[in-house]
Amino acid sequence: MQLTTGFASPPIDAARAFRLVLDAMAHPARIVDLPEIEAPAPCSPAAAIVLLTLVDATTPLHLAGAHDSESVRDWVRFHLGAPLVGPQDAAFALGAWDALCPLGRFPQGSADYPDRSATLIVEAAELRNDGARLTGPGIEAEAYLALPDTAALQANAAQFPRGLDFLFTSNVQLAALPRSTRIGGA
C-alpha cells in the first residue's frame, strides 16, 4: 500500500492552512494558494490540505465518483480516520461537481441548527474569477467566480440560513462559496 505523506508539522501546517481556508470563506470568490502536498489520486493537493485541516474521526466524509478510489480511501483511513458514509450522513464531501450532484442528497441543516449542513469540496479543472456575479457578506462591492451550475447554487443560496457551503479546489488553489453569497447573473 502506497500512502502519501500528511502534514510535516501538523500543528503549524494545519494552522497556516486553516487561515487560508478562513480567508477564502470570509471572502467568497477569492482564490487562495495553498502549499504543495502529495495527495492521493485523483485528489488535488488543495483538497487534501482541506481534509487534513478540518476532517477527522468525528466528521463523516463522503467520497463521490472517481474520488471514491482505493488510494483516497486508504489515505483517509490512515491520515484522518474519518468514517466514510453516504451523502445523507456527510459532514464533508469530496468529488467533482457532477459526481456530487444532486445537492439535495446532503444534509442542508435545519431551521433550528442551520450549521448542521455539509461542506462540499468540489474539485474543478481550474478556478477563474469570471462568470457569475457575486455579492453579499465578505464581498466589498462585487466579485466573480466561474461556477459549475449557477441555477443549482442559486437554489442553495435561496435556502439561507439553511444550505450547503462549498470549497472549490483545483491543484493548489482554493476558493469558497458559502450559502450566504448572493448569486446574480453574469
Binding site: 486553516f18 481556508v21 478562513l22 458559502p178
Partner: peptide
C-alpha cells in the same frame, strides 16, 4: 482535534 472542531465551527459561523 479540539482545534479542528473549533475551526469547523468558525467556518460555519462565517458562512451564516
Amino acid at each position: 482535534a479540539t482545534k479542528r472542531m473549533l475551526r469547523r465551527a468558525i467556518l460555519k459561523a462565517v458562512a451564516i
